[in-house]
């Protein structure tokens, strides 16, 4: 996993990185799925308290790389990775890093809302409970309420906290999943196409939420929608065939990309 430290080639520094500290970084990362070389020699620096969007055509490896950031790929037996990924400068694949602990610092929201078959309250309380974050019931209740508020869901569900989370609408379910992720106080939130199963109104709601959340979290979002990337992110990374083609300030990527492939993609020539 963590062999020969890759050459320290710094990718070109986007403007936004100048005034924000680095949160996560990848150096010379290669990921294989069985025989498939899904990510090829990828290096990137992800800043804190900003939204970084990964865009690119289907199968370009953006979701695979996202899942490497909290080691969710560990759950797939045929998946192997080399190179280094760091969180606050520490290699997350070091033998003494527990993936279970890592994931409480790097949370994740999935493509399809996946609330647990429990009540709304229990969904949000799940993380704090397993990590033993709350000493008392009152403390737990407070944390659940705060998390739901941060996810902009509390007002809609405060009278039915003990009803099943699966009974909510798709957009509410996704905000519930975000509340659930927030409840363990992560530093980074990874979002894998969080709006692809939602209607435009629910999508707009989630996008607003993402914009609020970046005050407190480092957010990485994979999206198929270039408009969404343009709306919510400060940084955009364009992936193509397993390589990171271009990474920079969102406005620059969308108005003046330096690479022809990025240009072709954002103007809709393929993808």
């Amino acid at each position: 996993m963590n062999d020969a430290s890759p050459p320290l080639m710094k990718p070109p520094l986007p403007r936004i990185l100048a005034d924000r500290p680095e949160k996560m970084a990848a150096r010379g990362v290669n990921i294989h799925y069985g025989d498939k070389h899904a990510i090829k020699d990828l290096s990137i620096t992800i800043p804190d308290r900003a939204v970084s969007a990964f865009i690119g055509p289907s199968g370009c490896g953006k979701s695979t790389f996202l899942r490497a950031l909290n080691r969710m790929n560990d759950t797939i037996p045929s998946c192997r990775m080399t190179g280094a990924i760091t969180l606050d400068g520490r290699n997350i694949n070091d033998p003494d890093v527990d993936p279970v602990q890592l994931r409480s610092h790097v949370g994740m929201v999935f493509q399809k809302p996946n609330p647990f078959p429990k009540s709304i309250f229990e969904n949000v309380a799940y993380g704090p409970r397993i990590h033993g974050l709350c000493a008392s019931k009152a403390e737990l209740e407070q944390r659940v309420e705060e998390s739901l508020k941060k996810a902009g869901l509390f007002g809609e569900v405060k009278d039915r906290l003990h009803q099943p989370g699966t009974g909510l609408s798709g957009g509410q379910q996704q905000r519930l999943c975000i509340a659930r992720a927030i409840a363990v106080n992560p530093e980074v939130i990874l979002m894998d196409e969080p709006c692809s199963a939602l209607d435009p109104i629910a999508t707009a709601r989630i996008e607003e939420l993402i914009d609020e959340l970046r005050q407190n979290f480092c957010i990485v979002i994979v999206t198929h929608s270039m408009q969404q990337a343009a709306r919510v992110s400060q940084l955009t990374a364009f992936f193509h065939l397993g390589t990171l083609v271009e990474f920079g300030d969102t406005d620059k990527i969308f108005t003046a990309p330096t690479d022809q492939r990025t240009q072709d993609y954002i103007t809709g020539r393929y993808g």
Partner: peptide, 21 residues
Amino acid sequence: QSLRDGSLAMGATPSETVKRV
């Protein structure tokens, strides 16, 4: 599988995931 992924991504161990989800 999405439920298992959701639980694991919360930092739950595989056995917590089985028992609680």
